[in-house]
Each structure stands twice: as structure tokens, then as C-alpha cells.
Design a protein around this nucleic acid. Structure first.
Lengths: 201, 201
DNA sequence: AGACCTCGGTTACCGTCAGTAACCTACTGG
DNA sequence: CCAGTAGGTTACTGACGGTAACCGAGGTCT
């Protein structure tokens, strides 16, 4: 990392550059949302924790929804990057799926805060849907590699969504069973899904 | 149905029995939540639609959360009943899973209101988790029928959660693709999952 | 030097809504 | 006729999302 990370403490007399303030608020907001839930988190408190007042937050994010979406966006990007990296490390389709799945599970296990953020449905159903779709698109791509030419596009999409959801659902299960190693879990899911996916080849 | 359904209109001068009022409010609340989302739905408006005032709602449900949970509970029970009925109609394990899956998909397709209610995460994460768990328990039961004796209990649970989540995830996909018949979708998922499930037998 | 701009920030307010305390009133049974 | 109660209302509080208006330190142009 060449450019040293700027810190808030360097700006003693208030007056922190917008970009830095934004990063600071995003980090605090992520923690706050995870800690209190969407409804329970108050803009006032976020501002207080950052040592500023409400209008500052509103100028940067527009609204509470805007702030939340920004947080989710951040997490989604991190997750997508993690998966992409893991997938790129392998070359065989099946190995890529296993690697992607493991990365997914790992992320869920190691970033519960971010994870909880992303799986908040409710009024953010639309956003959640688009997250899932892009996730599924990623999987579709993986599957398209190994799919025969004549495969029905809809069926492929459905399978991709199913695969994505399966991992997602199991991630929830994991929280209740920390004693089970995640590699084991990832393996079980892969073992469950791969046989059914083979018919696409 | 022997006992005739009591209706609100029969009680011209206010004074409606609590039980009936409760049913009425639950139905209106379900619609309202679906229409406006949790945050957007106001207790005031619900009361107005029912022709009463807020404290009536509060006496019956305690809080907005309480009302919401009651709504979800109602939907969950309906879904579980639907699935149980469908499953009971078959005898072969594989056919039962297919039937259960189809019932699941059918419910999602025909009760979007209830469905949306159930998949609202956020502050209701705990409730959502318990719903999923009981759902998965149902599937576990199904799978236990066809599972060999020595099967790892954890693996079975994981698979059950994965199967449940897969159906759930695809239900979301369906909304965006109403042109695809639900039987087709249900079949695709079954085809995807069953091969992987066979290793339990 | 002084006029001026702008950037980061504050004070003080509004409207909405969950939740509650206190009160009202038509029936019902003794 | 009186008491109890079941169903309901009025009128309020407190919290919170969101906003208008203002402020002051620093740099820049003439």
C-alpha cells in the first residue's frame, strides 16, 4: 500500500475532508446497523459516534436508506471480489465451483456484520433481489462454462439461483453450529449440488 | 364448514367480539404490510381501515412487532399445512420431496403477500431463522426416511437447509419470470437436487 | 489589505408515528 | 337499580428522520 491511510485524528480542529469522513461514517454505520438493526440504528447516534451532527450525515448520504444502501454496496463488492479471486485460482469448472462456494462460506463466517447487512429483506427487497441476481449471474457464468450448448437458458438461471440460495441458506445454519468446520460444510453443499449440475455438461 | 363465519357487519354499533376483531385486523394488517412494507405501514392507518382507533390494535397485539409476528405466524402455519398435505398424498420418498417442493413453489406463487411477509429479514432475523429451521426440520424428516442409518446428522441438517433455501431462492426468481410455469420450475429444482440427495440412501 | 467564496459544520426546528394513560358507554347479570 | 365489564375513544408523550438557515476558518483574487 503506497499511499498512507489518512486518519481522522490528523485533522484536529473539525474540518475533515469529505471523502475521509464518508469512509469513517460507512464503517461506523456498518457496525451500528449490525449492532442495532436497521430500525434500531439512529442517525443521531451515528453522528454522535463520529463526533459530528446529523446534517453532515445527510449531506453525504442523502437519507437513512441511502446510507444503508451504501453500506450494503460496500459489503457486496467485497464478497464479489473474494469469490472472483477464489474462482480465478482454479481452472477446472468443478474445482472453480467448489472454490467459489468455499469463498462464499468463508466470507459469511468471517464477516457476519456485512452478511447480516446484506440479508436484510423487508423494504430493501428490491436491492436484495438485485444482489442475488448479480450473484446468480456470477454462478451462471461458471455454469455456462460447463453447460452444453443447447441448454435452456431459464433452466440455467434457475439452477444458478438455487445454488446461490443453497449456500446462502447454509450460511445461516452455520451461525448456530460454529463447532462444524466451514470447509466441511462447503464440501457437503458441493457434494449435494454437483451431481445435479453434471446433467448440464 | 359447520359454524357460519361471523362477520363484522353484523355488529352494527361498534362492539365487535375480540376474536373476530383480531381476525379482521390480521387480514387487514397482512394486506397493509404487503402493500407498504413494515416501516411504511402505520398502526393508525390499520386502525382506520378497520374502523377503530389505535389502542384497540395495541390491546390485541401489544406492539407493531407483535402484530407483525402474528401475521407471519399465520402465513407460516398455512404454508406448513399446504406442504404437509401435499407430502402426505405421496408414499415414495422421492415423490414426496417433489410434491413438497411443488407445494412450496405453489404457495409462493399464489400467496405473494404472505410470502413477502415471511421473507422480511432485518430486525426479524431471529424469527426468520426459526421459520427456516422448522421448515428444514420438515425436510429433514422427509430425508431421514430415505437416509441410511449411519448418516451424519449434521450433514443431513445442512442438506435440509440447503434444499429449503434452494426452493426459497428460486421462488424469488419466479416473480421476475411469470411466463415460466411453476410446475416446470419445481421440476428443475427437483432434478437439480435429487441426484445429490441420492447419496443419502 | 480587504472583499469574497467555499468547505465542513452547527443550531433549532418540523412532521410523523409508536406507544400510553385516562376516560367513556352501552350492555349484562344479580 | 346498581355494579361490573367489554369494547372503544380522546388526547397526549417521546423518539426519530429530515431540513432550513446560519456560522466561521482558510484560501484566493485584485
Amino acid at each position: 500500500m503506497a499511499t498512507s491511510e489518512a486518519r481522522i485524528e490528523d485533522y484536529r480542529h473539525g474540518k475533515v475532508p469529505r471523502q475521509l469522513r464518508e469512509r469513517q461514517l460507512l464503517e461506523l454505520a456498518e457496525a451500528l446497523f449490525a449492532e442495532r438493526g436497521y430500525a434500531g440504528a439512529s442517525m443521531e447516534e451515528l453522528a454522535r459516534r463520529a463526533g459530528v451532527t446529523k446534517p453532515v450525515v445527510y449531506e453525504l448520504f442523502g437519507s437513512k436508506d441511502g446510507l444503508f444502501e451504501a453500506c450494503v454496496d460496500r459489503s457486496v463488492k467485497r464478497l464479489a471480489a473474494d469469490i472472483a479471486t477464489a474462482v480465478r485460482a482454479e481452472s477446472e469448472p468443478e474445482a472453480r465451483l467448489r472454490a467459489g462456494g468455499l469463498a462464499f462460506i468463508r466470507f459469511a463466517a468471517g464477516n457476519r456484520v456485512a452478511w447480516d447487512l446484506m440479508s436484510m429483506g423487508g423494504r430493501f427487497a428490491e436491492q436484495a433481489r438485485s444482489v442475488r441476481s448479480s450473484q446468480a449471474a456470477l454462478i451462471s457464468e461458471l455454469m455456462a462454462e460447463m453447460a452444453a450448448e443447447g441448454t435452456d437458458q431459464h433452466e440455467l438461471e434457475v439452477a444458478a439461483h438455487a445454488v446461490n440460495a443453497a449456500y446462502e441458506g447454509v450460511a445461516h445454519w452455520m451461525w448456530a453450529h460454529p463447532e462444524v468446520p466451514i470447509e466441511q460444510v462447503a464440501d457437503w453443499i458441493a457434494e449435494l449440488l454437483i451431481p445435479g449440475l453434471r446433467r448440464f455438461t
